[in-house]
Nucleic acid binder design. Structure first.
Lengths: 139, 139
DNA sequence: GATGTCACTGCAACAGCGTTGCATTATCAT
DNA sequence: ATGATAATGCAACGCTGTTGCAGTGACATC
């Protein structure tokens, strides 16, 4: 009964990296997977307040998840990094930042725009950031 | 001999705001206008090292220029803000960040991409960030 | 050109996010 | 069960950006 289509659970994803599966890593990756928005370090720290996870460990796990390709690290315009689990966001997507509540959501994008870069410039990654008002704050 | 087509000089632009035209403001706006890339606070501070301009003044002038519409403030993924003079960049443009040297350039974009936002989300501004290698670092 | 007002500057101290070093702990292979 | 070592916790630090307040300099007025 293999499940090739089902998304990997956090623990399975961690196991697949070959590194150690620790409580902090499971907790943080689970959190990112369940969240419907990109979480800041502070968000994660508060959510894990009951689990005695050190600030520094949160930073290290988030960066490690990013380096393993299990999370995306995006820069906010509040000088904060935000993280979202990958997997459900494999498709090209943009980041929507609500100017009222500050939350960042991932939204799918149809196509990436054409670019006319100056000679010699090589594009490796294109990031689309939208700013506006989210449904909750608008409604 | 009016010059309606010529771009306003930094001093003229400052004068037009109605606020005081100070040495720091002229120096910083001139710097931004001449630069071919977006400058960080540190860039500005170093360039003005001989002029005895305080760190805090640089921050305040940069933010003030932004609020007056004379400069754009963009968030970098190094937890730094970068500023570029507006005027030559009135057209819609994207920001190209070189992963090697870290410099940020403004590049023109043909059209903004179509977006299918979730219900209730209102877009107010779209920002396009490209990451890659700049001409100097590639060559 | 002199004078007064208040916007702007400089200085100092602070705040927040993220990083580094090192001793300790806990995961996993054996 | 045991040992190697990856990962954690703790403490101290660094950097970007902010705030409060006293002093100065730009500009309007005379």
């Amino acid at each position: 009964m293999s499940k090739p289509i089902a998304p990997a659970s956090p623990t399975e994803s961690l196991r697949a990296t070959g590194a150690r599966v620790t409580g902090a890593r499971v907790a943080i990756l689970s959190l990112l997977t369940q969240a419907n928005r990109a979480l800041s370090h502070r968000d994660v720290e508060q959510a894990l307040a009951n689990e005695h996870v050190d600030r520094v460990t949160v930073y290290r796990v988030l960066d490690w998840l990013t380096s393993e390709g299990l999370a995306h690290k995006i820069a906010d315009d509040e000088r904060v990094f935000r993280f979202s689990a990958v997997g459900k966001h494999d498709d090209p997507h943009a980041h929507f930042k609500c100017r009222t509540c500050g939350d960042v959501f991932c939204v799918p994008t149809g196509s990436t725009p054409k670019l006319n870069l100056p000679a010699g410039f090589k594009s490796e990654e294109v990031e689309l950031n939208i700013k506006g008002t989210c449904a909750r704050c608008a409604g």
